[in-house]
Amino acid sequence: MPRKLIKVTPSRIATWMDCPRRYRMAYVDRPTPPRGGAFAHSTLGAVVHNALRALFDLPARDRTPDAAAALVGRHWKDDGFAGPTQAATYRELAGDWVAGYVAETDVSQDPIGLERWVSAPIGTIVAEGRVDRIDERDGELVIVDYKTGRSVLTTDDARASQALALYVLAARRTLRRPCRRVELHHLPSGTVAVWEHSEESLTRHRTRAEEAAEEFNLATDTLHAGGDQDVLFPPNVGRQCSWCDFRRSCPEGQAAGPQVEPWALLARTDEVTKG
């Protein structure tokens, strides 16, 4: 019998590489163990993504900086923030980020896809995921990923991103058009990190994804056959345990250090500057 292809998403692979125990709790255990509460930086990122998606639902003539800032307010949530004052500060900051982005970026063309799900068999896996934005430029697809984190991103970040590479592989098969270019749009700094993949670089990313998929698939099958979950899915203890969703179900993670406040991973308002 032919081997069944393993479905992978960037988040599934990243979770496995970050901590096998967290992978088990997120993707294998049923019922799923309780997760922690919302984090402010995740809320902020989701609001910005939703505002930019809604912007492209408007007619091109209405995609103005003011409209973009207003969409941030419309999609805003206070989840994870220290209180109304902090939430209001970051709501205004996010509005400035999105307005500045629209002022400096050509948003007149309709993307090929917004929050588009792509999925395609590639080697021994089915690579799939939801892409923030897919543009078409000069007959080729371009993968665009929005970022709102603390750090200004570089070409190396775009080149090394396995998520973006998998999106390229899936998008070119799903949409049947050439695709090589990936872009990380970092809204806090107003910078764009770009990389154009070669077939060799995409093959390297695919191979690493296949290796990870084989590892977590084997561990899952062995667990279902009666294997020891702590041997198959050991915890990877580190500073990331302080903000892990499953911290309450992991004694080793709790012992690694104190839990951070839900707003601790926000960039300070003076941390990012325009590039």
Rank of each mutant, 00 (worst) to 15 (best):
S119F: 12
A70G: 05
A170D: 12
F246V: 12
R248G: 09
R159M: 13
T269K: 14
H41I: 06
A158D: 04
L232W: 11
R35L: 12
R173H: 12
G37V: 00
D18W: 07
L187V: 02
D66N: 08
C241N: 08
A170E: 13
V272N: 08
R53K: 14
C250H: 09
D157F: 14
T155D: 03
A69S: 14
G123K: 10
T124I: 07
S151G: 09
R133T: 04
T105Q: 13
H185L: 09
A94P: 10
G149L: 04
P234C: 10
R173W: 01
V144S: 04
P10H: 00
A212P: 08
D245E: 14
R24Q: 13
R61A: 12
G257E: 05
N236V: 08
D106G: 02
T174I: 01
D62P: 03
T105G: 12
F246M: 12
A165H: 04
E211K: 07
V102H: 03
A51Q: 04
H75Q: 15
L187P: 04
L166Q: 14
S249M: 02
D228G: 08
A120S: 05
R204T: 07
P84W: 01
T64P: 12
A87I: 11
R3A: 12
A219M: 07
T148V: 08
H49L: 05
A82Q: 06
V47D: 13
V131H: 10
T124E: 15
G45T: 05
L187N: 00
L141Q: 04
A264Y: 08
I143W: 10
V102M: 02
W97V: 02
G123L: 01
G226W: 06
V72W: 04
E104G: 11
V237L: 10
R208G: 09
C19T: 10
S119P: 14
